[in-house]
Amino acid sequence: MSRVNQTLIDSMVDDMQPVAPLRANYGWALVAAAAAIGALGVWLTAGLWRGGYRGDAEAIFYAANGMLLVLGAAASASAVVMASPGVGTRHDGPRWGMAMLAVLPLAAVVSALAKGSTGAILNDPYGLECMAHALVASSATAIALTLWLRRGAPVNPRNAGMLAGVAAGALGSAAYGLSCPIDTLEHLAIWHTLPVLIGGVVGRYAIARVLSW
């Protein structure tokens, strides 16, 4: 070993203090707490849609919100693990989840085109409002994941940022889904999935910038 390396090692050993290791379980608990804060915020500010939990909603309401929840969980799990890198670790799961969710807007567009009712998608008076609320509900998860990843050592900051954004967008949208009483395919497939797309883009380009080390 070179003398420079030995000198460097000596100085690092002198400087060394105990650290709390980043255990994945802590990360998942942190994300769960942040998502719960988002859901609590929705409940306190907008209330819950009683039809949703009474079972009065259309099946697509449960399917869409369930898909958002599963995607949010998968993307969060991968983003948390990315803080502790390791050759051989795979992060393919969320991509399949994203592909699964993309079926919803595709189905809505195909269905609208077949019926000649694309206006139902474009002229939704509540769409932007729902999307904005979902993005606000996603902010706690986005902050929690960003802070977690900054403490760690993600070796693919772009992918880590994108997954953090997708996770936050999906969980925020699922949280706001508890409050939104509109249970049509067109509304859910477009306006409740857009926060995921926006989260992914923001994560890929903005969050990734603060994750480089």
């Binding site: 390396n5 460097l8 090692i9 690092m12 400087d15 060394m16 650290v19 709390a20 290791p21 980043l22 255990r23 994945a24 803080a83 502790s84 890198p85 390791g86 050759v87 051989g88 670790t89 403490r151 760690g152 050592a153 070796v155 080390w213």
Partner: peptide, 25 residues
């Protein structure tokens, strides 16, 4: 790499193997 290991030593998860972590860095 040694400096990165020092700065990011908290990112090693004790439940996982060490060499793949070092190799990733």
């Amino acid at each position: 790499v040694l400096m990165a290991v020092h700065a990011k030593r908290a990112s090693y998860d004790p439940a996982r193997p060490f060499l793949p972590w070092l190799a990733a860095i």
